[in-house]
Each structure stands twice: as structure tokens, then as C-alpha cells.
Design a protein around this nucleic acid. Structure first.
Lengths: 204, 204, 204, 204
DNA sequence: GATGAATGAGTTTTCATTCAT
DNA sequence: CATGAATGAAAACTCATTCAT
């Protein structure tokens, strides 16, 4: 009897937890798809629930508000990307190389998971406080990478580079015929050129 | 007597029109202020009317929807800026110089009329079809400027540059302590560096 | 001087009065056309003013409310028709003949001035209190005509006849190819048949 | 166990549907009462929701506009009445008898469910396209009934009869002291008299 | 836990009426 | 007198959130 109870205790909650987690993930994925398609403000919670194929009330068992699932979505996506960036830059010390890796990694990720990126970069930074903060994270990381090379100009160059990337992603997502390889090359080149000039304070 | 008749002919028929136009402009200016302050989606039509100090119904006398006044706002602002750019570049043939002028002119304008720019560049290109089209206009103009220097890469570089500028403006608008002169210099430098590299197809 | 003043007193006010009356009539005619076309509730005062080719404010110089012009319209039209009926029936004593004249006169008038009739008879009696009263007037007149012949049944027959007529008018107005002469004949016949039966209380 | 599963199969899936349908019917009944009482144009959607004792938003869960519930109301009511007429006339071939049955059935129904009838017949045919169509249905049915007896005059007589009936209903609904039996008798008599005359083309 | 019907505060929208010119 | 821009009360409509089952 104890054993059986044990079993219930061991499996039951896990089974429910697993099911719960599954629904939660389905909601997140559904939200990503719908928001990417219709934009945040035009997405109704009913749309998300319906896309996830769950009842409307179920949404509220997992997220308190529309904003909450959105934040989760962004945080989750941005966190993943950031981790990937950290890994890619591990052991690298050359700022130019770090810049190149940042651009390549982000553009690769955008091509791989366009829907996430349409949300994070598709609205521009001024959309929501959260977005500003997320963008700021990437800008800060890049600034730190660039400071050894260009000092006080690192902040500006980081801002400009992220803006450039944001536009590159938007372009990539809306033009399916665009060559990812070429876009990466041009973007990296452009940024490296900018970086070079920033490092030569003599040119006006 | 002829003069008096003249006056009547000149002013009489326009009395209502002038009043109407005045209110219309007040509404547009009010909308600009409120949308810049609260963002498009958080702006109620009542807010605009109230900011313009007119009755709620008056709004609908001039614009059918919030979207309509917004479109007018963007079109008007973007048109002005574009004209200014055309003037600034008149007689210039060097692509690099045109690029420099584009950046300087836009950043100057942003510093001069932050509210308009917060609207045109503050939401990112994916916000509304119109925004995409407006951004596209500037990108196209720039592409044409750059084609003589870098050929097929002009499109990409134009996209990247406008993205960069968009970010620069956002940054400028949110950080009052930022030096406009320095931002302009860094941005121009960055872009010129990118342009140089794009012109040298040998570097990877 | 007195003479001149006299002249002004005589002509001036008359000229204005005449002009005023003209505008008033234009508004009434415009209202008739528009209400006949769009129905009372779907007619905006702006529509009436615009159809009369006067300013919106001008409407209110002549009528206090939308209801007022409507009442005027109905009263005026119904009064005219009633007068015509009285004249037509002058000197006639036979109830059947009076019934025949009532039907013929009303259908003739409807064919002559369809727009007025679309308003008076085109909405059914329950539309507005006023309409009920107007219909009641015609019913009462007819009841008095019929009482000598059928006594207590006169009220019911008057109601039924007016209902019949109302439908005949609606039909006439919506089917341009309908022969007025035939409709009149059928309607008169139908009513006279009804009247005959009402006069023979033996039939079940 | 099978039974229980059966129950689940029977009730489970329908629980929401049944609740939904119940509210929908409550709204329809409430709309009937309120529109009959205040007329279509003076009825606010809030009135209907309040009469049905549900929230305002609930209305929109079931009907898109006020017009939509109104159309449903008319269609439903008219359909019922028409079915009743078809049943009543089953097996009858004499046109006069069919006419008598039509009148009696409709007047009985009006006395039984005054609210529905105030809506279907209380606004007159010109109110809405739908009303015209509904009236036309009854006219067409009657015309087919009468054609064997009076041929080409059937259309006109059908129109006149329905107009007569419409007025009889209006009268019945507004005068509570009216004897239904007497009204029916008079109306039938009137119509039969008309029919007789129509069948004798010799009388002018 | 899951469900979707119900809710109602918050917005948009209409239009009869006023009023400065 | 004539005008039409302005007004705002009143009505329509949306949708995030709750809750009984």
C-alpha cells in the first residue's frame, strides 16, 4: 500500500507536471507563432489559446496576463541567443573577431528561428520597456567586447551595430530570396569597416 | 470698393476652410505630441482631442480613424525630411559625401524635432505597412546614392545604414545628455568605414 | 421720408419673408425626398440640408427638430389629401360610392405624389405616434361614411380598408410597371365586395 | 460503465452548447419583448441584454449586431407561422376556404403571441428589406391559393388581403377590448366578399 | 486541471444641436 | 439670415479576465 502510494506520489505528480509543462510549452510556441504573424497588439489571448488548441481558461492556468507570456517569450529567446553568443566568443580575445562572431551568430539564429526573431527584433526597441532592456543587453555585451579596441566610442558603435543587425534581420525575414551567406558577409564587412575607422581617430 | 469686393472674394469663401484647416493642424500636432509621449497603441482618440483642446467629435470631423491621422503624420513628416535630404545633396556627386550628408541631415532633424522622429523611427519598421514603406523610401534613396560606388552591395549597405540611423535616433531621443556632434561624427565614421570596406571586395 | 420708410416696411419684410418661405419649402421638399428614399430613422438632418442645398444651420432657422419637420410633412400631406377627399365626396350620400371615391382618390394621389405617400403610408401605422393619429383620421372619416350602411361593423371595415389601401400604395410605389387603372378597379371591387357581405349579416 | 461512458458522451460535449443555446434563446425572447414594447429603433442593445439578465458583452457573443438578432427573430417567427398555415390548409382545395383559414390562423396566432406579431407586422413592410421579403412570402402563398379561383387578379387580391390583415393585427394588438371572434368574422367576411366580386368580372 | 460562456470597463463612433462668424 | 465647424451625450463594440461546471 505504501508502495502503491509511493508510486502515485512518484509518478502521479510527475505525469501531471509533465502534462502541465507540455501545455505551457504549447502555449509559448503558439504565442510565438501568432505574435510573429499578427504583432503583439493585434494578438488576442483567444488567438493564442486557439492556436495552442487549448481552452481559453487554460491560458490563465499558466500565465497571469498577456504581458507575462510575452515577457517569458522574449526573455527565453533572448537568453538562449545570449548563451549561444557567449559560447561562440569563448576563448576569443580580438574585438574584431568578436564582432564578426556576434553578427554571424545572430544572423544564423534569425535564419533558423525566424518567428522568435520577428518578435524580438521585428518591433524595434521602443515598443515596450522590455524590448528596450533586451536590446540594451545585447548592446552592453557588444560594448564590453569593443571597449579594448575603441574605448569611449564602444558604446556608440555597439548601438549602431545592433541597429544595423536589427534592420538586417527584418530584411532577412521579409525577403525569402535573400542569401544568408551574402547578407552575413556584407554585414560583417560593413561593421568591421566601421570598427576600423573608429579605431583611427585621425580621419574626420 | 473693388478692394472690398476683392477682400470678400479672397477671405469670404475661405473663412470656414481656414478655421477647418486650423483645427486639423492642431489635431495633427496634438497627435504627434501624444503619440510620441504614450506610443501609438496607448493613445486614445480622446487623448488627441483633449490635447488639441477640441471636442471628441471634432476628431471625426477631420479623420476617420486613429490610423488615418497617424498615416498623415508619418507621410507628412517623412516627406519633409526627404525634401530636406534632396536639397542637402543637390550638386553633390560623391557617394561618400552623400552618405555623410544623409546621416548628418537626418540626425540634425531628429535633434530638432524629436517628437516627429519618435513616431517615424520610434516603432521600428514592422509596426505598420506604412512604416515599412516609409523606411523603404529612405533606403531606396540611399541605395541609388551608393550604387556608383559599390554596385550590387548598395542595397544591403543602404539597409544597414538606415537601421544604424534608426538606432542612433532612438538612442539620441532617450539620452538627453548625448552629444549630437559626437553622435553624428561616430555614425558618419562608422558608415564611411563600412562603405570603404564594401568598395574593397578583396577583404573577407 | 415716411413714405420711404413705409416702402421699406412694406417691401423689405416681404422680400425676406418670401425668401424665408422659399427656403422653408425647399427644406420640406428635400425632407420628403430624402425620407421617402432612406426612411425616417436613416435620414440625417445633414442629409436634408444637403439635399435642399442649404447650410446645416439653416435647417434650425426653420425647424426646431427633425421630428418637427417630419410632423409638418405628414400633417401637410395628410391634410391636403383629406381636403381632396372631402371635396370628392361632396354631395354624395351612397356609402358604397363614398368608399369607391375614397379608394380612387387616394390611389390617384399616391400615383401623383409617390414620395409623400411613401412617407405617410410606407411605414405602417405603428411607426410613430403621429402616424397612428394620421391613419386614425382616415379610418374615422371612412367609418363615418360607412356607418349608415353597416352600423357597428363600420369601424372594423374602415380599419381593414385603410390597411388594404396602405398595402396597395406600397405595392404601387415599388412596382413601376403596375397599371394604376387596374389596381384601382381591383381594389374598389374588393372593398365593395367586402362591404356587400358586411351588409348581409346572414352569411357566416 | 458503458452507461456512464454513454452519459459522458451524451452530456459532456453538450454541456457548453446547452448553456450557450439557453442564453441565446433568452436573448431572443428578451429582444422580442423589448422590441415589441419600445420599437426597433428605440431599443438599445443594452436594453436587450438587461432584459435577458445577462451582461452586455454576452449579447455580442451570440449576435454581431442588433440587426442580426432582429432578422433571426423575424425569420423564426414568420417561419413558424407559415408552417402553421401549411398544416391548417392541408387537404383543403377550395380557395375561399383557404382564404378563410389563412385569416383565422393568422389572427389567432396574433392574439396568442402578440409580441412576435407586433414585430413582424408592427413596422410595416417598408421598414427593412427583410420585412418586405417576409410579407412577400405570405402574399405569394396566398396568391397561389387564390389563382384557381380568380386567375390574374390573385396577385392583387393577395396583396390587399395581407394589407388588410396587417392592419387588423395592429388594431387587435392596440385595443385589448377588441373581440377576437368578431374581428375574425368581419375580416373573413370582408375578404370573402372581395373574393366573390373578383370572381365576377362583370360588375364594375 | 481544463473549459468556454459570461462579464463590463474602456473605447470607438455617431449625429442632433449649438454658436461664432 | 446663413453657415458649417464644433460639441458631447449616448450608443455600439472589444477583449482581458473571471468563474461555474
Amino acid at each position: 500500500m505504501t508502495g502503491s502510494a509511493q508510486n502515485i506520489r512518484d509518478c502521479g505528480p510527475n505525469r501531471f507536471e509533465r502534462r502541465r509543462e507540455k501545455t505551457r510549452v504549447e502555449l509559448l510556441e503558439a504565442a510565438e507563432r501568432v505574435i510573429a504573424r499578427k504583432g503583439y497588439h493585434n494578438t488576442r489571448i483567444a488567438d493564442i489559446a486557439s492556436e495552442a488548441d487549448v481552452g481559453l481558461g487554460t491560458f490563465y492556468l499558466h500565465f497571469k496576463t498577456k504581458n507575462e507570456i510575452f515577457i517569458e517569450l522574449i526573455d527565453y529567446g533572448a537568453g538562449d541567443l545570449r548563451e549561444e553568443l557567449v559560447k561562440a566568443k569563448a576563448g576569443i580575445h580580438d574585438p574584431a573577431e568578436k564582432l564578426r562572431l556576434t553578427i554571424n551568430t545572430i544572423l544564423d539564429a534569425a535564419a533558423r528561428a525566424p518567428e522568435s526573431f520577428r518578435i524580438v527584433f521585428g518591433h524595434g526597441p521602443a515598443f515596450l520597456d522590455l524590448m528596450v532592456r533586451v536590446h540594451q543587453t545585447f548592446i552592453d555585451d557588444l560594448r564590453i567586447d569593443l571597449e579594448p579596441a575603441i574605448g569611449s566610442q564602444a558604446d556608440a558603435v555597439a548601438h549602431l551595430t545592433i541597429g544595423m543587425l536589427s534592420q538586417a534581420i527584418t530584411w532577412l525575414l521579409e525577403r525569402e530570396d535573400l542569401s544568408l551567406a551574402e547578407l552575413k558577409e556584407t554585414t560583417v564587412n560593413f561593421a568591421l569597416g566601421g570598427l576600423e575607422r573608429a579605431a583611427r581617430p585621425d580621419v574626420s
